[in-house]
């Protein structure tokens, strides 16, 4: 249907078509918005902490969307409504400002950002909570060019990845997992998109954080801090299993030898971390 110039003239005949088109258009918009909302959210969260982060992100996004549509709308409106017309004579009113307006559009954003800050503060206190006493599984993560070492000091298991053989961290579902992350050479970033979380592995520092996985499955992770030549290859995964599977895995001494050679496995007789000279030792956690 070609758009007609004089849309007002043929109002009578096409009402039904118009209404149908309007309905279709509305459905299309709803579908589009729904699709867009799907696309613009973070990965679906796989830990208790990530759920909070996801909610916080959605809050920020909602406020951002309001600001975006408000201001872009004002811009578009000005462009359409206030273009200079051939009938314009003389100058438009020379408005130099408006104190009340300016106070309003300073104060409203101020209140808004303080509110978001407080919300984010609450979430941060949970996400960054590091209560050693509640940790049920403790793992040590060490980044090195260009792979990861995962250690289970209590079980004497150490898993060494390479850039070709990405290591896998195995943790039980619904348990508080405490990660101590460091680096033995340059900065790395321990980042798992579905945990909505990353923490840098910095040489000379041990960063500690906790998470509680709440979904079974394998979650891919990757180094997020540029670390040199093969930065892109520094991948790993986290496998979340049931407690029974986890216990069996630990009892079997970690990844089995035939697991596609995923990792080198070293079991010590004593439940103390191996003193591999090149690897940072976790004798003390400083936070």
């Amino acid at each position: 249907m070609l758009p007609k110039r004089s849309s007002c003239a043929d109002r009578g005949g096409n009402t039904r078509t118009m209404r149908r088109l309007a309905t279709l258009g509305l459905l299309a918009i709803v579908a589009l918005v729904a699709g867009a909302c799907q696309a613009v959210s973070l990965r679906s969260p796989a830990t208790d902490q990530a759920i909070l982060i996801s909610d916080l992100y959605n809050l920020v996004f909602a406020v951002a969307a309001v600001v975006f549509f408000l201001v872009e709308g004002l811009i578009v409106w000005s462009v359409i409504r206030y273009r200079r017309k051939s009938t314009d004579r003389g100058l438009p009113a020379q408005t130099h400002g408006n104190l009340v307006l300016e106070i309003v559009w300073t104060a409203v954003p101020m209140v808004t950002v303080i509110a978001i800050f407080l919300a984010s503060w609450n979430v941060l206190n949970v996400v960054d909570a590091r209560d050693e006493s509640v940790a049920q599984v403790k793992v040590e993560v060490v980044g090195y060019q260009w792979a990861w070492k995962f250690g289970y000091p209590d079980a004497g298991i150490e898993i060494y990845g390479t850039a070709e053989q990405n290591p896998q961290l195995v943790v039980p579902i619904n348990k508080v997992v405490q990660v101590s992350v460091s680096s033995q050479d340059v900065n790395h970033g321990f980042y798992i998109p579905e945990f909505l979380f990353q923490r840098d592995a910095v040489p000379g520092r041990v960063n500690v954080f906790q998470f509680t996985p709440n979904k079974l499955g394998v979650f891919n992770g990757q180094c997020s801090a540029f670390c040199g030549l093969m930065h892109h290859a520094m991948r790993f995964s986290v496998k979340v299993v049931t407690q029974a599977e986890y216990d069996a895995w630990i009892a079997a001494g970690g990844p089995s030898a035939n697991a596609a050679g995923v990792a080198t496995l070293r079991i010590t007789t004593t439940p103390v971390a191996v003193a591999t000279p090149a690897i940072v030792r976790f004798s003390r956690i400083t936070m």
């Binding site: 201001v71 273009r83 438009p92 408005t95 559009w105 800050f117």
Partner: peptide
């Protein structure tokens, strides 16, 4: 964190000032 939030405010003020400059003007594209 809070300072990063705050720095959005003067930037926002400018945004509104620019839009208000165009408001009821005679725009030439």
């Amino acid at each position: 964190s809070i300072m990063t939030f705050f720095i959005a405010i003067p930037t926002g003020v400018k945004m509104f000032n620019w839009v208000a400059t165009m408001w009821r003007g005679q725009l030439i594209f």
